[in-house]
């Protein structure tokens, strides 16, 4: 008897859930913080699962020269109209300097000439945009791990934050300056480079001149362009909107391995 009632209740509950499914309800649910919290929990599961499968060193696929895309799409900012950036661009980035600071023993200030004199890595990789498209390009730059070793990370450093020159979007309640962050697993990955060349030529403005990050095992938005400053931090809660990335502040995953 009790089993029958349980079954009936189960049916009623199912019917209620299905009845609540119409799309207007889903739109409301999308904005409900509790629902959002439950949905967002999948990100941690994905990150944990992918990090379990990925060894620290496993490389993103590299392609032959013939695979390079004829037209590589530029996304996000393609010509930052920030005054400081425009001034630097006019002088061919001769006065541009990369600041490396935060939780490091020896803060650095590097010119493009300094970076080009350091050991470099060249890789032909596929750039996957969160929107769904892919382009293949050849990138040359300095492995970020080498730069961080030179600066000497302090023991409590956990994330590397990239501050960019471009202002993107027009949100009123969020900072609009582009920034990104990655953890130390990705920071010291051999394919994580600070790229100054693309397809054998100095990086052009639409693609992030003079310097952009390549984080090949994640989506395109992690690969910040127009990098001005790198900071090692223990947490990123106090930066930007507090979620560690311009797009994470806008609801996207901070861990963009999928």
């Amino acid at each position: 008897m009790s089993e029958k009632i349980d079954r009936r209740m189960l049916l009623k509950a199912t019917a209620a859930v299905l009845g609540a499914m119409p799309l207007a309800g889903c739109d409301l649910a999308s904005q409900d913080p509790t629902v959002r919290g439950i949905l967002d929990s999948a990100e941690e599961l994905t990150e944990a699962a992918q990090r379990t499968l990925l060894s620290r060193q496993s490389l993103a696929r590299e392609f032959p020269e013939t695979a390079i895309s004829k037209h590589f799409r530029a996304n996000g900012s393609d010509n930052p109209d920030d005054g400081d950036y425009q001034r630097l661009a006019r002088s061919g980035f001769a006065d541009w300097r990369l600041d490396v600071g935060g939780l490091v023993d020896h803060p650095l200030r590097l010119s493009l000439t300094d970076l080009r004199a350091m050991p470099s890595r060249t890789q032909i990789t596929r750039h996957d945009c969160v929107e769904g498209w892919s382009c293949i390009g050849k990138w040359t730059g300095v492995p970020l791990g080498g730069v961080l070793q030179q600066a000497g990370l302090k023991a409590n450093a956990r994330y590397i934050v990239f501050y960019c020159a471009d202002t993107f979007g027009d949100s009123l309640d969020l900072p609009n300056k582009y920034y990104e962050s990655i953890d130390l697993v990705d920071a010291f990955h051999p394919q994580t480079i600070l790229a100054y060349d693309m397809n054998g030529k100095p990086l052009e403005v639409p693609y992030g001149a003079p310097l952009r990050v390549r984080v090949e095992r994640q989506l395109g938005y992690k690969m910040a362009k127009y990098v001005m400053r790198i900071e090692a931090v223990e947490s990123f809660g106090h930066i930007g909107g507090g979620r560690g990335s311009f797009w994470a502040d806008r609801g996207y995953e901070w861990y963009a391995g999928i």
Binding site: Q50, S58, A60, E216, R217, G257, I258
Partner: peptide, 13 residues
Amino acid sequence: MSPALDAVFPFVA
């Protein structure tokens, strides 16, 4: 389509 899993199983794509 996941860039991370593509690095784990590069032969699938």
